[in-house]
């Protein structure tokens, strides 16, 4: 059933981080799978549109154009008086040309987004476990502290791969870092033999590892493949205030300390 409390414009503004806090909170509260998927549509279209037209930005500007613009700039500079030039020096606070980052997302859209993808993740081997509660933003708990995934998260060094015990699926540890709250987090990918790649971030707390972020990049046969996987991840990392990845030594030390 489709719920009608929120107009497309409102959900879109939510996805784009343009909504006021009160309405955003209301959406989060009401967020259920159908609304999450509607929001995800706007997240996805934004990312895909940007990605699709990215290559145009990388095309070299034709010489004819850049030369004639440069000529006009030079002429304009000759015409202008020095005092004018100093005034124009204010015009410097521009963003970088290729600003690929999404605008700062609504503070916590990422959890509802992850919720919308839960169903897909469930299909992928049973490493992930349901929500503790809809209202508890602690992510998906990794099934069992001695589960193959938990074990791998505590052991596999970033850059290395391992086969998850009891399956043919491979886990690839990508990076270890601390989030804004100081929790130890790991970015990793899981390839299953006949399915897709799950790109995920799990963070460690007293209760063990919890998956805070997961997107699935399915094979590109017929259906759409979410180009947003990596950009969604970037947005997530930015939104959670993730720090730079730990060095190999620091990572090893941090993982060792978890086991104690």
């Amino acid at each position: 059933m489709i719920r009608c409390e929120f107009a497309d414009e409102t959900l879109m503004a939510f996805a784009d981080g343009e909504l006021d806090d009160a309405t955003a909170a209301a959406i989060e509260k009401a967020m259920q799978s159908d609304i999450a998927s509607r929001v995800a549509l706007f997240l996805e279209t934004r990312v895909q549109a940007k990605e699709a037209l990215g290559p145009v930005l990388d095309e070299p500007v034709p010489d004819r154009l850049s030369q004639s613009v440069q000529r006009m700039i030079d002429e304009a500079r000759r015409r202008s008086v020095p005092s004018d030039a100093s005034e124009r020096a204010h015009v410097v606070a521009f963003r970088a040309r290729d600003n690929r980052a999404m605008p700062r997302p609504q503070a916590s859209w990422i959890m509802p987004l992850a919720a919308s993808l839960v169903a897909v993740v469930f299909g992928c081997g049973g490493y992930f476990f349901g929500f503790a509660s809809q209202n508890q933003p602690h992510g998906l708990e990794v099934a069992g502290q001695d589960s193959p995934l938990s074990e791998a998260l505590g052991q596999v060094a970033s850059g290395e791969e391992a086969v998850l015990a009891g399956s043919t699926d491979r886990i690839r540890a990508v990076a270890t870092f601390r989030d804004g709250a100081g929790s130890l987090c790991r970015e990793f990918e899981i390839d299953s033999a006949n399915r897709s790649t799950v790109i995920s971030v799990a963070c460690h707390s007293n209760h063990g590892w919890a998956v805070n972020f997961a997107v699935v990049a399915p094979a590109r046969d017929g259906g759409y493949a979410p180009a947003s996987s990596s950009e969604a991840l970037d947005s997530y990392l930015a939104a959670t205030g993730a720090h730079e990845p730990l060095s190999r030594e620091d990572e090893a030390a941090a993982l060792r300390s978890l086991g104690q």
């Binding site: 145009v56 930005l57 500007v61 124009r88 020096a89």
Partner: peptide, 25 residues
């Protein structure tokens, strides 16, 4: 450092974006 012609510099920097928008238009 004081930029002598930030306006022109920025204009050139944005040429690819302007072109992309114009191509789409």
């Amino acid at each position: 450092m004081i930029e002598t012609d930030p306006f022109g510099k920025q204009l050139v920097a944005f040429l690819p974006n302007l072109r992309r928008f114009a191509i789409s238009l």
